[in-house]
Design a protein around this nucleic acid. Sequence first.
DNA 1: ATAAATTAGTTTCCATCGTCAACTATATGA
DNA 2: TCATATAGTTGACGATGGAAACTAATTTAT
Lengths: 149, 149
Amino acid sequence: MNKNITDIYNLIQELAWHFGNHGFNGECCRDLSLAEFMALKKIQEIDNITIQEIGYAINYTKGGASKIVDRIESKGYIKREYSAIDGRMCCVNVTTEGIDIINSIIEEYSTYVDEMLKEFDDDAIENIKSVLEILMTASKKRLNTYNPQ
Amino acid sequence: MNKNITDIYNLIQELAWHFGNHGFNGECCRDLSLAEFMALKKIQEIDNITIQEIGYAINYTKGGASKIVDRIESKGYIKREYSAIDGRMCCVNVTTEGIDIINSIIEEYSTYVDEMLKEFDDDAIENIKSVLEILMTASKKRLNTYNPQ
DNA sequence: ATAAATTAGTTTCCATCGTCAACTATATGA
DNA sequence: TCATATAGTTGACGATGGAAACTAATTTAT
């Protein structure tokens, strides 16, 4: 095994830990947990997303997704409606408060990242971004072959 | 705010989610949780590490660290001893089984990463690694200013 | 048309996990 | 020697997510 590959694995894991649930001094996203925030971003991204789609997007069961939707809804950031076409289906959509908090959280963390990377020039920033895109694309492709449901 | 910075923040978060507790099909590291594995790696890294140092390293309270050490020890991967110099202090060290499982987990995931990045040449791999190193260094530096205890 | 099967979402029970704060035991210092 | 500080442990608690049973709506088969 190429040592660089092993290093990359360890670095990704460290990065994931650092920016995951217990990083950032254990705090995440105002009154939202990291899981809630990930779900909220997905809900904003896809119009009339269903509970199951949310679960699939964040890798939760539908029961878990239903509960996370409960919590975000109780905070006022999303709204459940029932589909006019299929009465079983939930159409979840973001509220104005939801849009506001997403933007404000993203702004807050972008400031953090900006500060973190202030010593790097535009080309370096561009390179960092493209590497992260490569990693995300590659890992998603890899997941699909494993989990093709 | 430079849009690239915001993109970088979102990409890091997605990557963290994907490789964090709920990624990898929700499975991590054989019979270890991600937190346990991160702690185990730290324990291997630092000889005679104390409970508090472990807690600091993975951003847990000392109570939490004590419990995580319980779990890893009960699986046989580490061993608590009490310091000869200061009877209050715990010196935690990895066992042979611990070294074995760390190596085998790292090998398993490195294979995953290798597969994931197989289409990239050595220069690209080198670049990915150096970007990840930059991110880790930058984020650690940033944390220290915030959390200097 | 109607009964059976399927599907989306909810809920209950449960196990895991990490924090807080009280506690034990050891060390230090006045 | 007694008070204080420190390292680690423990019990109570709250948060959380999965499994599976459950409800309600839809579709399929007869």
